[in-house]
Amino acid sequence: MMQHESLVIQTTRKDHLVAGFAALAISIHLLESVIPSPVPGIKPGLANLITLYVLLRHGWAMAASVSMLRVIGGSLLLGTFLSPTFIMSLAGALASLLVLIAAYRLPGKPLGAMGLAILAALAHVLAQFLTAWALFIPHPSLFTLLPVLLTAALISGTLGGILLNKIMQRVDTRLSQ
């Protein structure tokens, strides 16, 4: 007589936002992974801009969810889950997330998108590099590559931050219309 109650997970508006942003970040992650790069490790870092956007608009908890979903979802789709690539991706995401949260919480919130994006990009590259060096390529010569990677991170962080300022401006204009 008793029928199985259908299991319904109650979702909130917040969950939908997390899912939407994560989907966006994963899409960008996938697109970026097919762009050829002259040096391994150099990427535009646009997927991380989503994390920063979510941090600025919706707080650190949601930014952390989106970032982790991006790493796991992206690696599952690329087939790199639990591989060295995944571990490096995770290390980079965690480091940039921690630095972002710390920098965002500075008293008086002095930093805008550009400063935050630069710090996040540098933390990302540094953590990935140290992970690669500690776990996979423990050779002193690897450090020759580090300044190049840091330079790329500085440039992509700066441009990314400026881009994000413009994007947020536009989103605001759209929302207020």
Partner: peptide
């Protein structure tokens, strides 16, 4: 959404 002073400092 301007570039703030602290942003330039960080850069």
């Amino acid at each position: 959404y301007r570039i703030k002073f602290a942003d330039k400092l960080v850069f």
